[in-house]
Design a protein around this nucleic acid. Structure first.
Lengths: 360, 360
DNA sequence: TTATTTTCCGTGTACGTACACGGAAAAATT
DNA sequence: AATTTTTCCGTGTACGTACACGGAAAATAA
């Protein structure tokens, strides 16, 4: 252990000395809150440059009396759902920033109910936060929400999906069009001609299709067109229920008996396990299945070999980075990148364990 | 901006108050450096538990006079090589920790020369560091080195590869056997019978085969055996030179004319671009090529479609996590996980950009 | 000129922790 | 009982920064 004096970190008192002023003046220049003569300001700025000064962020937040409150607006979920990861990641991420005097609050909404989103959004204003992070599910309601945020000068960030023409601070999410394109490539490469492809969708009372899901679908179709596979493959669709396992089973029985050449299947939402359950029960090992997101059940079927590919989108990183960038921007006045696409991670039976176990 | 007093973070003075002692005593208990009566100690420990106190790491390292010096022992490299990433990542990583009074120094050795490694290792002792991070290239020399470190009570961590029976603090690296297995799966799936597989190796003056490369090779063979492909495929080997492009070209000309059914090729080191260069020049689009690591040239050929797959191993994370864990252990006395495998990341033309561009 | 305002800037304290110093109380020794 | 030693613990200062306060100097007004 090297106990000697730490190698001279240069602080404001050093630049004060060099500039021939007091540290109070240096501080005024740094935070440019005026009351400094031009001469002094320039001397300080020169000293800052000459000594290559950078503030000690620890000391800064120690001394700071400011407290930052961020609000996160995210969907409600069932245990094991995709959104659980995001939710938990917020808690984990905020721990990295508590020493910067940061805290978060959360508002939940129903993914299928725009008015529930609007209500959650409205509740944000009861006590004005310093920033908002949200998953923008409903375009109209989101636009109204962020417009109101703007009048209050409250910055906001999107994650998961994005509304391009809003004035967000950052976006973190996957390029879902591209991930659909990649899904098609993985799923369809090397399939025999005239194979049937099963596209599994979810029954909805209301006709809501999330941005992400719709875009994956578009990317998927794009690949088919680009490769001229429209007539070489046949797409078969089936709509499964969220909760009625029995009904789904007979639906699938029907589909598979009507279409004898199904060689591959895909779900654009995260519920690949619903089909996997069927395939496993029927011992259908001849269907290549691709799904999204590392739900526990998906992972389990991947390991069993029922699901061939899972595409992941690092929900934890999306959340962490969103929060981190909000801190960078608001607390440390640093610049941040507006649009950030997370990688399209390809998981197979053989690399899933390392992916999951790796704790950065 | 919420300027009100920060929500009462509890510090040592709070537990001092509750325990009815001074903060000096609290500090003595926390760092258990004695000179505290049993009664006081217990009162303090109870207060710590009751108030759920956790130290402010910022304040701690601000007040600390200790300075930590870590030494990194890594291979020399040419610009663009795999090891450049690791080297640069050390610089980047240490920036995250400078405010914790951490600095690093580096020692380079020749990958092909064990005595050069030994010399680099020996030079570490000129000024005793607080910790060492190294890529253990030569088993014997490494064991000697870490034995000496142990006599000096200097902790050390491995990255890239690992020597299991050494008393290292952490290891970060890829399971190269498994990554070879996966490579085989990606490369060989769906190939026609009697296809020839080209295995590209590197000519070496001395017979050194890195751990990683050898293990990938073993994993590759394991897949072939497990699938019973020994007789259905034929492996063809070629040894390319590191620097003689012209000689390599005629070597490859020869190999491809002798073996007319080469449908796939692999390199177990990071130099896939050397074969890609040839394939591109000869317009051979019928060879599926898999390589390792995101060297600029590899990435470029991947994007062009000459390389079909690249397997990446997050060298930047390996380095960052090694350094971070050393800080966690030595500075913050936290526990760390000993063996950490990084994910086997699968990159194709279509997802490489997002992978590279994503800055966490 | 004197009084008043404005501009400018130095001093001091606080943030939560580490640690040196020294003093009081208790214990041991004479 | 007086002295010495040991045990225990409170006080004070420092880390680098933020910011309040108030004072000196300069500019303006009387």
């Amino acid at each position: 252990m090297n106990e000697e004096n730490k190698p001279g970190r240069i602080g404001i008192k050093d630049i004060a000395l060099l500039a021939g002023v007091s540290k109070g003046t240096v501080d005024r220049v740094i935070h440019n809150r005026g009351e400094v003569s031009i001469k002094s300001r320039e001397a300080v700025q020169k000293a800052i440059k000459d000594l290559d000064y950078s503030p000690n962020l620890f000391a800064r937040s120690l001394a700071s009396r400011k407290h930052y409150r961020f609000v996160c607006v995210i969907p409600k979920y069932q245990p094991g759902d995709y959104w659980e990861t995001a939710d938990l990641s917020f808690d984990e991420a905020v721990r990295s920033f508590t020493d910067y005097n940061v805290s978060i609050e959360k508002r939940y909404f129903d993914q299928l109910d725009a008015s529930s989103f609007a209500a959650a959004a409205e509740s944000v204003f009861s006590q004005l936060p310093d920033g908002v992070i949200l998953a923008p599910f409903f375009r109209t309601e989101t636009l109204a929400f962020v417009a109101k945020l703007k009048t209050q000068n409250i910055p906001f960030s999107f994650f998961d999906s994005m509304i391009e023409d809003a004035d967000f601070l950052t976006y973190y999410g996957q390029n879902s069009f591209q991930s659909g394109y990649i899904a098609a490539k993985l799923l369809l490469e090397g399939l025999p001609e005239n194979a049937e492809i099963l596209v599994v969708r979810t029954q909805r009372k209301k006709n809501v299709l999330s941005n992400q899901t719709a875009n994956r679908n578009r990317g998927f179709i794009e690949y088919i067109k680009k490769r001229g596979l429209e007539r070489k493959l046949k797409l078969v669709e089936v709509w499964l229920a969220d909760d009625d396992e029995k009904a789904n089973f007979s639906l699938l029985q029907n589909v598979f008996s009507m279409n004898r050449s199904i060689k591959a299947a895909i779900t654009f939402n995260s519920k690949a396990y619903r089909l996997a359950m069927y395939l496993e029960k029927m011992h259908r090992t001849d269907v290549r299945l691709l799904g999204y997101d590392l739900l526990e059940k998906n992972v389990s079927y991947l390991k069993q070999g029922v699901i061939s590919f899972l595409i992941a989108q690092r929900p934890d990183k999306q959340v962490y980075c969103s929060l981190r960038d909000m801190c960078r921007k608001l607390i440390f006045k640093q610049e941040v990148t507006r649009v950030n696409y997370v990688p399209v991670d390809l998981l197979i039976k053989d690399n899933i364990d390392y992916y999951i176990d790796f704790k950065e």
